Amino acid sequence: MTLRLPLPGGGTRAYEPRAEPLAPAAPGPLTSRTVFSAAHVVADPYADTTPDGPAAVDWDATLAFRRHLWSHGLGVAEAMDTAQRGMGLDWAGAAELVRRSAAEAKTAGGAIACGVGTDQLTGPATLPEIRAAYEEQLAVVEESGAQAILMASRALAAAAAGPEDYLELYGHLLRQAAEPVILHWLGPMFDPALEGYWGSADLDAATETFLEVIAAHPDKVDGVKISLLDAGREIALRRRLPEGVRCYTGDDFHYPELIAGDDQGFSHALLGIFDPLGPLAAEAVRTLDTGDTAGFRKLLDPTVALSRHLFEPPTRYYKTGVVLLAWLAGHQEHFTMVGGLHSARSLPHLARAYELADGLGLFPDPARAEARMRALLTVHGVPQ
């Protein structure tokens, strides 16, 4: 049946939904790349809460989605910005998410790495307070048995006087970490409060500080996640990493070429877009495992248009499209988000996300996705 999709500024256009989904190959382990999907949280739609209240999470549906990702051979990057850290999910909720997901990972035999930040700090903080906040969260993640991802800190960005403060604080954390961690450089397009991270708004200068942190503690850095949406900068940085330190791309615009790599190396992956792309992304990487780079690109290149749409400015609201697609794909029974973030994107934006995802065959049951999209359009006054 034809859907009437809204146009920006008014009016509608006809769209014929896909009749059949793609049929991904049988799941299996990934061998040539380490791949994490940053996973979203599922809100409890029955909770009587407010946007500025504590997050109410549907734990059963949230953990079921993680089992879905593990079943396809992907690792889960937990309690990251995709899970609405600092945008609806506070530290108390994130700590519970870490504990529950890490326990589930042990049962499922899945890989998991969890975000360590300072978001329990609610106002201006001193450097000792920031260090203590990081230490508190690092302890929670390590006690859960998960790998730690040292996330960029809004509090540190506000308090640091220059590169020396980053070198001292990260050096302290790396020295006390029980196991090698992943360092996360999240650009201001994902969080404006992180402008000038590593002590400078000049990315070349910031890169030198970042590399200095790594070079001083290569045995404590498993890898680095780069989320700057700049493929050239990521490649240049990747080539300067100490031997044994991995680069995990967080570039949701250029991930196919960065993962495929070149004759001087490649990036592993830790991506929010692999939340909706899970089965297809896993199939693409298994194709790459066989040495078939062209086949990998044939599968993954067509997904970039969807990713660029979801992550268009303001980029930090990409989570809204991610959760919409999870609902349409049947991974949850509603389209609501913690903090009310389901209202963060326009109806035309969501309609285009549906169209692009449907064209890729991402929905296991296209008829269900069509019916749900039709209901969403109807309740927003778009005649069908």
Rank of each mutant, 00 (worst) to 15 (best):
L150R: 06
A193G: 03
L310V: 09
D48P: 00
E195N: 04
E96N: 07
A105K: 10
R131M: 01
E355M: 02
F253M: 10
D275N: 14
E142K: 08
L228H: 08
L347A: 08
Y166P: 06
W70Y: 04
C247S: 14
Q264T: 13
Q264D: 06
A177R: 11
A125C: 08
R67A: 13
A294R: 12
W91F: 12
G199H: 11
M87E: 01
A260S: 06
P302I: 13
A294T: 09
A369H: 06
R18M: 07
P188W: 11
L167D: 10
P51A: 12
V338I: 15
G359F: 05
L3S: 06
L306F: 10
E355N: 03
L360V: 07
L194V: 15
S200D: 14
T82L: 11
D52S: 12
G196T: 13
H172F: 04
E370C: 11
A111D: 12
V285A: 00
A56L: 03
L211V: 06
T249S: 12
A26S: 11
P383R: 10
A351G: 14
Q384Y: 06
R240I: 14
G145P: 06
A47I: 03
L328T: 07
D262A: 05
Q84F: 09
A146T: 08
Y15A: 13
L5N: 03
D358H: 06
S101I: 12
A371M: 06
G291D: 12
A369F: 06
F363G: 05
A177V: 05
H184W: 04
W327Q: 02
V76C: 11
R175T: 14
A326I: 00
P256R: 08
M189K: 10
L138S: 09
P348N: 11
L127N: 10
P242Y: 07
P383G: 12
V322D: 01
T34D: 02
F363K: 08
G199M: 09
Y255C: 04
A157R: 09
L258H: 04
A152R: 01
P27A: 02
L5Y: 04
D90A: 15
L30Q: 02
G265K: 05
A23Q: 10
P21W: 07
L310M: 13
C247E: 03
S32H: 09
L377N: 10
A132Y: 03
F65I: 02
I226L: 15
T122F: 02
V382Q: 09
A158C: 01
H268F: 02
F65M: 07
M80W: 05
A231Y: 05
G291Q: 11
V141N: 09
A367P: 02
T315C: 10
L174T: 07
W327H: 13
E333W: 00
E104T: 11
E143C: 03
G10R: 11
H349F: 13
R66P: 01
A111W: 04
G265F: 07
R374H: 13
Q264M: 04
D252M: 08
P279Y: 01
P313Y: 13
R372G: 05
K225E: 05
V323Y: 01
D81N: 08
A375T: 12
Y170F: 15
E195D: 07
